[in-house]
C-alpha cells in the first residue's frame, strides 16, 4: 500500500524514531557493561563511564584471564555444552523417530506419546528432583548437568512433527529394498531433517551454555561450577576486597565492578558469536504448534 499523505509521513518518522530508541534501550546496557570492563576503576567509580571506555585499560581482562578458577569453570562449561548437546540430540532423535510412526507401524506409540507429554504437564518439583539426582550418584559430577534434562521433551515433539512430514513413499521404497528402521532413520530421515536438526542443535547449545541453576544446586564444591554458575556466585556475593597492599597500583585500575563487567561480557561472547546462526533459525524453531482460523 502506497500512502504518501502528510500524516502518514509524520507517522513514519515517529515510528522510526521509536525503533531507534528501542534499539538503543536494548544495546546501551550491553555496551555500557563492555565499556565498564575496559575502563579504569577510578573513572568507573567517579561515574565518568557511560557508552565509551574512559582511561582505557585491559587490566580487568588480564586479571580475570589469569585466574585458575575462571579457566576451570570455562572448561566445565565447554565440556558440558559438548556432552549435553550430543546427549540431547541423540535422545531427541531416538524418541522422535518412533513417535512419528502411526499406531499401525508402532503399536505402543500412543502410550509413549503420553508417557513423554505428561512430563510437560506435571513434575515432582525441585526438591524431589534434587533427591533423585543425589540418589543416582550424580552430585558434583558433570552428568548432573546432562542426565536430568537429557530428554528435552519439547524438542522431541518438534522433531516428531518434522519427521511426520517426511513423505511416506521414501520409507516404503526403502522397506522394499530390505532396509530396517535404523537404516531408514539414518539414511532417509536424518538427511532430510538437517535444517530442523541444526535449529535444535543451536538452541540446545545456547540453553546448555546459559544454564546455571542446576550447577548451583547439584554441585556442592564450587570448583565444579560451570561458568555461568561461577559467575552467578561472584555477582550476587557482596563486594569483596580482593587485593593486598602490594597491588595498590592495580586497585586504581581494576575493582570488583570492572572485574564483574569483564566476566559478564566474556560469558556473553559465545552467544553473540552464534547469534547470526540463531537468528537464521529461530523463526523456524517457533513453528511448534499452530493456530487455525
Amino acid at each position: 500500500m502506497i500512502d504518501n499523505t502528510l500524516s502518514r509521513r509524520v507517522f513514519n518518522v515517529i515510528n522510526i524514531v521509536f525503533f531507534l530508541l528501542y534499539c538503543l534501550i536494548c544495546l546501551v546496557p550491553i555496551i555500557h557493561i563492555f565499556s565498564v570492563s575496559l575502563s579504569s576503576s577510578a573513572s568507573v567509580s567517579a561515574g565518568r563511564v557511560s557508552l565509551l571506555p574512559v582511561d582505557f585499560t585491559l587490566k580487568s581482562y588480564d586479571y580475570v584471564l589469569k585466574k585458575d578458577e575462571f579457566w576451570k569453570a570455562l572448561s566445565i562449561s565447554v565440556i558440558r555444552v559438548i556432552i549435553g548437546v550430543v546427549v540431547n540430540m541423540l535422545m531427541t532423535i531416538l524418541a522422535a523417530f518412533p513417535l512419528s510412526k502411526t499406531t499401525k507401524e508402532f503399536k505402543a506409540k500412543n502410550f509413549f506419546v503420553w508417557f513423554f507429554v505428561f512430563t510437560l504437564l506435571f513434575s515432582g518439583g525441585m526438591i524431589p528432583t534434587y533427591m533423585i539426582v543425589r540418589y543416582t550418584g550424580l552430585l558434583d559430577s558433570i552428568w548432573a548437568l546432562v542426565l536430568p534434562g537429557a530428554v528435552p521433551v519439547f524438542n522431541v515433539i518438534l522433531l516428531m512433527n518434522f519427521f511426520r512430514a517426511v513423505p511416506k513413499e521414501l520409507e516404503e521404497s526403502a522397506f522394499i529394498d530390505g532396509a530396517g528402521y535404523f537404516r531408514i532413520m539414518w539414511q532417509i530421515f536424518l538427511p532430510v531433517s538437517l535444517p530442523a536438526l541444526a535449529t535444535l542443535t543451536v538452541f540446545t547449545m545456547v540453553s546448555h551454555w546459559n544454564s546455571w541453576f542446576d550447577g548451583m544446586i547439584y554441585m556442592n564444591d564450587a570448583r565444579n561450577y560451570p561458568l555461568q554458575t561461577y559467575l552467578q556466585a561472584i555477582l550476587v556475593s557482596p563486594n569483596t576486597k580482593l587485593m593486598t597492599k602490594a597491588q595498590a597500583e592495580l586497585l586504581r585500575l581494576i575493582s570488583d565492578r570492572t572485574l564483574k563487567a569483564a566476566q559478564v561480557f566474556i560469558a556473553a561472547i559465545p552467544i553473540l558469536l552464534v547469534y547470526p546462526f540463531l537468528q537464521r533459525y529461530f523463526v523456524s524453531g517457533l513453528t511448534l504448534g499452530s493456530v487455525k482460523g
Binding site: 524418541a95 512430563t119 515432582g124
Partner: peptide
C-alpha cells in the same frame, strides 16, 4: 522402534517420573 525409544524412555522414567514418585 522399541530399542530406539527405550533409552530416552528410561531416562525420562528416572529423572521425570522418579521425582513424581519422590
Amino acid at each position: 522402534l522399541y530399542a530406539m525409544i527405550s533409552v530416552p524412555a528410561l531416562l525420562v522414567l528416572i529423572y521425570y517420573y522418579g521425582p513424581m514418585f519422590g
